[in-house]
Structures are given as C-alpha cells and as structure tokens.
Design a protein around this nucleic acid. Structure first.
Lengths: 319, 319
DNA sequence: TTGTACGCGTTATCAG
DNA sequence: CTGATAACGCGTACAA
C-alpha cells in the first residue's frame, strides 16, 4: 500500500508538500502540485483515514443511540440526523440499545475513546449522572428537557402537549380518558404522566391505573390495547396513543370489529406520520425530521443549546 | 490526556509491558501488572482507539448500506446484523443512500480508506462493476444472487418465490394478477419480473404493464395502488404485494371502502411481518432477521459463501 | 519475563 | 513557497 512518503519520493517533493496538495492547502507551486497529482495517479494512492484520525484527534463520526431501529419514531429522527450528517460530511455510528444500559455505556465509551466525535441520545435508560460523566469527552445531545443541566437537547414539551390533548378530549365530552405509551420510565414519559395526573386533578376525575397502557410501540401492539380495554368494566371513551403506528392499529382493529370511531372510541395519535394522514387519524404533529436535523447540528456546535420543538394538534376524523 | 508512555513512566515499566497488561497478553509478572493497573487507576487513563486502528490496520467497524432506514424490511435486516455485531464486538456505520449512487460510493470509499473493515449492501443502485473494483479492500456482502460472481451473499430466490405465489393465486382461479414493488430496477426486482413474465407465458395470459405498480414501499403507498386499480377497466383480481406494510395498507383501505377481501380482491404480502399476522394477511415468510445475522457473519468470514434463505407461503385470510 | 526501538500514515510547526 | 521533523498513541519484532 502506497503512502504519502512514497508519493513524496516519487514526485520528488517532501511529504509536507504532498499533504498540502492532498488537503488543498495553499502555498504550493503548480509544478510541484502537478508532480504530486501525477504520482497519485500513477500509484492509485488513497489515504489511510485512521492515520488522519489519529493525527487530528477527530473522526467525523457521530454516534446515534436508539432503543429500536425498527420503530418509526426513531427512524424519522435518524432520517433527519442522516440528512445533516451527509451535508456536513459526518458518518453515523448506530447503537441499538433495546434500553440496555450496557449498550448505552458502549456508546459513551466510544466517545471517550475518541472513536466518535459526539453522541446523540434519542432515548436512554441510563442515569443522567452517567451521561454527565462523559460530557467532557465530547458533545452529547439529548431528546429530552432536563431542568437545570447544561446539556444540549431538542425536545418536545411533553407536559404541555399531553395536557392540551387531554383538554381537547375533555371539551369533546370525554371524562374517561386513557393513554398508551412505549414505556413508563424516562423523562418524557414522566412528563406525560404528570400532565395526566394534573389533568385528572384539575377536573376532579378519578385515576384508573389500568387506563395507562404500557409497552405500546408498534402497529401490532394495538391488539394488546384493545384487548385490555375490552376487559374493563368501565373502559375509557377516548385514548391518547403516543405513536401513530399504534393508533393506526387501533383504528384498523376497530374497523374490523365494528367499533365506531370516534363515536364509541376517540383516538388521538402522536407524530403525524404519513399513516395518520392516510387513515385520517387526529394526531399531534411533531416535526421529527426537523428535530433530527437539530440534534445533529447541536452535536457539532460549540455551544450548548436547548430547542423546544413546536407541535400542534391536527384535527382529523378520530377524535 | 495521558497515554501509554505516561503510564509506563508512572509504573516504572516499559510501554510494551503496559500494552501487554492493557491487552491481557501473557508474560508479565504480577508485580508489574499491578503497578501498571495502579497507574491506570491513578490517571484514569483510556486508550485512544484511533491509534489502535492505525497500528492494527483494522477498526472493527462494519458498514451497512440501506436505501431507506425507515423501511421495515431494512429495519429487520439491520436488527439481525446488529445482533451479531454486538456479539462479535463490531460497530455499525449506517449509510442511508436513497438509492443515490454517490452515497453508495461513499460507503465503498470508506472501505477503501480502511475506516470500515467490511461492507454489507442490503440493496444497491450502482453497477456491480463498481462493487467489484472495491472487493480487494475488504469483504463485501450482498443481498442478491449474482450468477458467476465470487462474492458473498444472503438472498432469497425471488424468481421461485414469485412464481410459486403466482401459481398459488392461479390455482385459486385468478387469471388477472398484478403486483406492487419498491422499484423496477435491481437484481431482485428483475428476477421477480422474469417470474411474472414466465408465469404469464406458461398460462398464456396477457401482459398488462399497468398491473405492475412501482414505488410501493410504505403503508401509505397502498392508497396509490388502490387508486391505480380503480381506474382500470379490467382491474386485477389478485395482487402480490412485495411488502407487508403495503399489504396492510391495502387491507385497511379495502375495509374502509367496503371492498371484500379476498372475494373481490386477493392479497399476498411479503416478509411475514408482525403486522401481517395481526391483520391475518396471507404472506411469504422471509427470515429477515436471520438473513441479517447471516450477512454479518459472512462479512467477517474469510471465505466467500452464498446462502439462499428458505421462505414459505403463510396461508391466512387474504388470498 | 522485560524493554528498546521502530512502524503505522498523516498533519502541524517552524525554520528557511 | 518548501521541507525537515516532531508529534499523534499504540502494537510488536527483536534483542536481551
């Protein structure tokens, strides 16, 4: 494998000069440049990027942590990140954690070892303290808002969104409202639960733990939701479904089983994914793609910033 | 940042010795090892992995090329790859190409520059010749079968699968059969089209170009399919849908629009995704996860191998 | 069992 | 404008 030294010898110049033409640096005469270029041609030389990485202490690689690669929510996020990565000449290293802390740690470790320059956590299971410990090794960006901590993030104000959606349903006459969610833990889920509790308190509604349905991520999880509801003596009349995928599944289920939407059951989805539009599902528009772009930009930025994404309710036919 | 040299000085040993304990190599006395370990503790030293990469000429990173990250088919594949990557201590670098050749080239370039050790193409737009040119830089694995070429691959015999599915529909009395597909180009699509043509020829059926519906990847693309069909004077009575996502969309559409399945329209999906099971869709089971695992293993293997995945028709309610 | 010395390939500094 | 030369940090023959 020919290297920069060989080129230098071949072109009759120094390695410095070779490096200069390789990186389009100024201060090199046309003759020498051509000589180097010729040598490059002749040897079909190519850089060893690892040497560059070592020398620069930088890899132009960014880590992206997601629990599930096949979940639409994260896929959209990644799409946004990938767009900016392409634009800024970064490569993406993907970590699928399934919410296992060791895997999240692996990503952090790579940041520490300088294999990646920065790291985006689209979601996490580990303690914030662990994240904090690694912040000195490179930029880390989160998808949640952590009060009083100096760390970049792009996030949705889950509390407000949830509260508003609940009020919307309440105004439509619903007093028994439930919700489905991916997991109960995590900042975002916590915010939602707070909103839910505060909403119930505000309107003096009772809290039914069974109205909160956990582990709902995919289209097919809708079956679980519906079966759960069927067994209830007093089932909710409206549901906040924190993924349009699941919402679509529920709508499908109801169509197949003769349950009228929104008359018998109202549904509000989340994300405003294409499937929600196609199926005319009322949903909360969350600009995931844009959020992904933000995340990337924040991960390469010098300063810390926090960006709250603007969301809005899209009124359609299911609520 | 403390390095191996500092450690050596601190522990009063040579860098070699440090390197030995760092990498669990034999031939180092307990005292020296402890001394080194102590130095490591004291300095909270950690490796610069890029130096390792340079020195070893290897990164333990694997590239994965997919056109669309948010497509379930590829997500499943990646899941399988990710599982083995984790097991074998490899990291994944993701390339979302949207079938743009330059982006595929970027991935190949990274292989050339040794930033990744090997490369998996889950799908591609570029010429095979380009791939071939890069095979000397590291293992490349494909998801298609290319006759007479020495390159590893895990693939489905698209021709046979398609032909059998078509015959299944024919036996059910269908003479007007169409199909939807992600794109018309590519080895796999070509094989399917060949099967389709041969099937028509075998039963002396006419070829309607309009029965082949292109650009169908996502759930919501089903709308396009159905609208297209509606406009036909003689619409197909059965459809092979090369993604369960799209098939699910079609079933949903039909339910909402009072089209009886399978009486008025028969549907066979592809992949046997969870959504197909939930919606009782007849489909072709393709072990994507396992295929992903294979791809990884082939990408780290010394020898070239070709693995045809076994598939089977899952009879359910839509055909 | 231990250490010296060099290689890995590139970039950056600094003197000319 | 050009070129020595010193990093960058680690692995590893080879010698001892």
């Amino acid at each position: 494998m020919t290297n920069i030294k060989d080129l230098a010898k071949l072109a009759g110049v120094s390695v410095t000069t070779v490096s200069r033409v390789l990186n389009d640096h100024p201060y090199v005469s046309k003759e020498k440049r051509d000589a180097v270029l010729k040598a490059i041609e002749a040897t079909n030389y190519y850089k060893n990027i690892n040497a560059v990485h070592l020398s620069k202490g930088k890899t132009n690689m960014m880590g992206v942590v997601v629990p599930f690669i096949d979940h639409t929510y994260f896929a959209f996020l990644i799409k946004g990140i990938a767009k900016q990565a392409l634009k800024n000449n970064y490569k993406l290293v993907l970590f699928q954690t399934e919410y296992q802390k060791e895997r999240e740690l692996e990503a952090l470790e790579m940041l520490k070892l300088k294999q990646i320059d920065s790291l985006i956590f689209c979601s996490r299971a580990c303690d914030f303290a662990i994240i904090e410990e690694h912040m000195s090794f490179g930029p880390i960006v989160l998808c949640e808002h952590i009060e009083g901590k100096r760390i970049s993030s792009s996030y949705v104000n889950q509390y407000n969104v949830f509260f508003e959606a609940l009020e919307y349903l309440f105004e439509k006459g619903h007093h028994r409202i439930g919700y489905s969610i991916g997991r109960r833990t995590g900042t975002n889920s916590y915010e939602r639960e707070m909103a839910y509790r505060d909403f119930l308190t505000k309107y003096q509604l009772p809290l039914h733990q069974e109205y909160i349905i956990d582990g709902c991520l995919y289209f097919e999880d809708s079956e679980k939701v519906m079966k759960r509801i069927k067994q209830m003596a007093k089932p909710p009349t409206a549901l906040l479904i924190t993924s349009d995928q699941v919402a679509a599944g529920i709508v499908t289920y109801c169509q197949a089983n003769g349950i009228a939407i929104p008359e018998e059951l109202s549904i509000i989805g989340f994300d405003n994914q294409p499937i929600a539009k196609m199926m005319n599902i009322t949903t909360i528009d969350i600009p995931l793609f844009e959020m992904g772009e933000n995340l990337f930009l924040q991960a390469v930025a010098e300063e810390i910033s926090n960006k709250e994404m603007s969301v809005k309710l899209i009124e359609r036919g299911t609520a």
